[in-house]
Amino acid sequence: MRLVLHVWRQKGPDAPGRFVAYEAADVSPDMSFLEMLDVVNEGLIVKGEAPIAFDHDCREGICGACGMVINGRPHGPRERTTTCQLHMRSFKDGDELWIEPWRARAFPVLRDLIVDRSAFDRIIAAGGFISAPIGSAPDANAVPVPKENADLSMDAAQCIGCGACVAACPNASAMLFTAAKVSHLGLLPQGQPERWERARGMVERMDAEGFGSCTNHGECEAACPKGISVLFIARMNRDFVRARLTEGRRIAKAGEGGA
């Protein structure tokens, strides 16, 4: 089949960008979306033009590197599917596609469809971990975890950090990504000691990075390739509020412990 692509081209972070139209001829339905772009790029290189820059690595839907907005849907039309796992059979001959990068102040465009998502790493660095220095661990079975918790925790832990939730959110909010990590760790016994500081530290960092706030549109969940549920956002809100309310009590407790 044959498609018309309107691709966002932008040479650098400060350069002005624009849409450029390309034709993708004899596209096979078995191609992945990125393989279709590969073919377009091969053509451009031969012509001595700069290929369309896009992030990608595993091409298996797990590393979270890829991602672009295709006809107004982050990662394209197919549910629970990353761009690299989207196949051309999801489109039909003659389709016209608008391809844009994630758009958010916290995700500045570096080139074409590539954005800088390091804000996500900083959110994790602000509390998205369990402090268990290497070598300090007790036997793995010393702390049983109820299967339900383990499974729910795993549901949240599946987040691949792709940023589609931010791209999809009308407020460019990073709540789903942050909530996924807060929940993944907060649902496990190992994660309890730092539970409150974690929620608080990560949310403060998230705000400082310049994402928008959540008004519960639910677009993030719809765009999330791993189907992370917005209910984790409710859970994080709860933890964040409790972090504040229980603070005094926790400090008092610690005091008694010390005495």
Partner: peptide, 9 residues
Amino acid sequence: YRRWTAKDS
């Protein structure tokens, strides 16, 4: 976005 398609909102 130049083009936007709402889903769950």
